[in-house]
Amino acid sequence: MRHYLLRRLFQAVFVLWAAYTVSFGVLYLLPGDPATIMAAGGGDATTVTREQTDALRHQYGLDQPLAEQYATRLLHAVHGDLGRSVQSGVPVTHLLRQALPTTAQLAAGAMLLALVLGSAVALLGSSTRRRWLRQLLLSLPSLGVSAPTFWVGLVLVQLLSFHWRIFPAFGDEGFSALVLPAVTLALPAAALIAQVFAKSLRTALAEPYIQTALAKGASRRRVLFGHAVRNASIPPLTLVGIMAGNVLAGAVVVETVFARPGIGRETAAAVTAQDIPVVQGVVILGAVTFVLTSLAVDLVHPLLDPRIITTTRPAVAA
Rank of each mutant, 00 (worst) to 15 (best):
D63R: 07
A213Y: 07
D305F: 08
L29A: 14
Q98Y: 03
W164G: 13
A204C: 00
A189W: 05
V254Q: 01
E51S: 08
A244D: 02
A204R: 06
A40L: 09
I234K: 03
Y20D: 15
I276W: 12
G264P: 13
G43Q: 13
L124C: 10
A110E: 06
R165V: 12
S142D: 13
G43I: 07
Y28N: 15
K216W: 08
V252F: 00
H79G: 14
P235Y: 03
P91V: 15
A12E: 10
G61D: 04
H163M: 12
P65V: 12
L62P: 06
Q135P: 00
T293H: 07
R221K: 00
V229F: 01
T256H: 06
V157R: 10
I309V: 14
L133T: 07
P141C: 04
T53C: 04
T53G: 08
L29S: 15
V13D: 07
L123Y: 04
A177P: 02
K199V: 10
T312N: 07
A198V: 01
T212P: 08
S88Y: 14
G61I: 14
A99T: 05
V288K: 10
T238R: 04
V86I: 13
G109I: 06
L285P: 01
I242T: 08
L239K: 05
A35E: 08
V283P: 08
L96Q: 05
Q274W: 15
F290I: 09
G125P: 02
T47H: 06
A122K: 01
L82V: 05
Q158R: 14
R2I: 13
A191W: 05
A67Q: 14
V252E: 03
V116L: 11
W151Q: 07
I308F: 08
